[in-house]
């Protein structure tokens, strides 16, 4: 197990360098000069363009730029954006916001998803099951931005239950609506996964054995079935956290939540290389770590899988 973790961590380092280089190259490959376009139609003077390009190492070859960037990164310098603001400052300010939003959504997904999945499985074929199925499919087939705008309009503007946008009301008021929308898709997925797993496990031999042994249904379900059914949900939720973190772009845009998703999108549009690489790298790292944890949890939850 220890060896396994060490080797996974070593792989992680390699992936880290690979991904940062890829992202760097990707931003570098975008057409157009971001400095020249800083002010839209209005051209900057050549001397200013040169000064800014020089300041941001944009005239160096790709590999030199990358090495300069990594050199700075190793000494804790994440670089600056084109208006001179340290990328680290922006991330330090925005990560907690995105974390809060993503974790709120994640908890909603986990709790609501598992509960709905269980109900659907235990009431299989009856109205709760059908209702939940309908809900899941509706959520899957409606684009998230449609959901978001509709919720904003109905619950925010018309009904006034939640703030329309921004985070000025703090947690939880400002976060609930965006988190609900963000969680909707994942909740449907978790529900489906749990329902199917539970159904499958209910039919498994060990359940029959347990029942035959005289254990109560409640105990069989809550101890044996649930534990064995959660593996799929845990896998999903582990990966999902990474997606929620990186995937808040639409939601952060619609609800004006100043998190990293927004920052990433805006920086992509303006080709702010240092910001994109900083945010994307952090996202990739979190994702990789979450994956590692999930893989380790596998072994704990399902003794049939082992990492040898």
């Amino acid at each position: 197990m220890g060896r396994y973790i060490v080797s996974r961590l070593a792989q992680l380092v390699i992936v880290f360098f690979g991904v940062t280089l890829l992202i760097y190259a990707a931003v570098w490959a975008l057409p157009g000069d971001p400095i020249r376009a800083l002010a839209g139609d209005r051209p900057l003077s050549e001397s200013v363009i040169n000064a800014l390009r020089d300041e941001h190492n944009l005239d160096d070859p790709l590999l030199v730029q990358y090495l300069k960037y990594m050199g700075g990164l190793l000494s804790g310098d994440f670089g600056t954006d084109f208006s001179g603001r340290p990328v680290w400052d922006q991330m330090a300010q925005r990560w907690p916001v995105t974390m809060r939003l993503a974790l709120t959504a994640w908890v909603i997904e986990a709790i609501v998803g598992i509960v709905l999945g269980l109900i659907a499985a235990l009431r299989r074929g009856r109205w709760p099951d059908h209702t939940i199925l309908l809900f899941s499919i509706a959520v899957i087939s409606i684009p998230i931005f449609v959901l978001a705008y509709t919720a904003q309009l109905v619950l925010g503007v018309n009904a006034g239950i939640f703030p329309v946008s921004g985070i000025s009301d703090g947690w939880p008021r400002s976060y609930i609506l965006p988190a609900l929308i963000l969680a909707a898709f994942g909740t449907a997925q978790v529900g489906r996964l749990v329902r199917a797993s539970v159904l499958e496990n209910l039919r498994a031999d060990y359940v029959r054995a347990a029942v035959a042994k005289g254990l109560s249904r409640r105990r069989v379900v809550s101890v044996h079935v649930l534990r064995n059914s959660l593996i799929a949900a845990v896998t999903f939720l582990g990966i999902e956290l990474g997606f929620l973190l990186g995937g808040t772009i639409v939601i952060e845009g619609v609800f004006n939540v100043p998190g990293v998703g927004q920052l990433l999108f805006r920086s992509l549009q303006t080709q702010e290389g240092a910001v994109v690489v900083g945010v994307a790298t952090a996202l990739v790292l979190i994702f990789l770590l979450a994956n590692l944890v999930v893989d380790l949890l596998y072994g704990v939850l399902d003794p049939r899988i082992r990492h040898d």
Partner: peptide, 16 residues
Amino acid sequence: TERFGPEPTDGGAGVT
């Protein structure tokens, strides 16, 4: 859509 990809979306790994 926010995950900008089909994948995440359907997500889960699972055996079910």
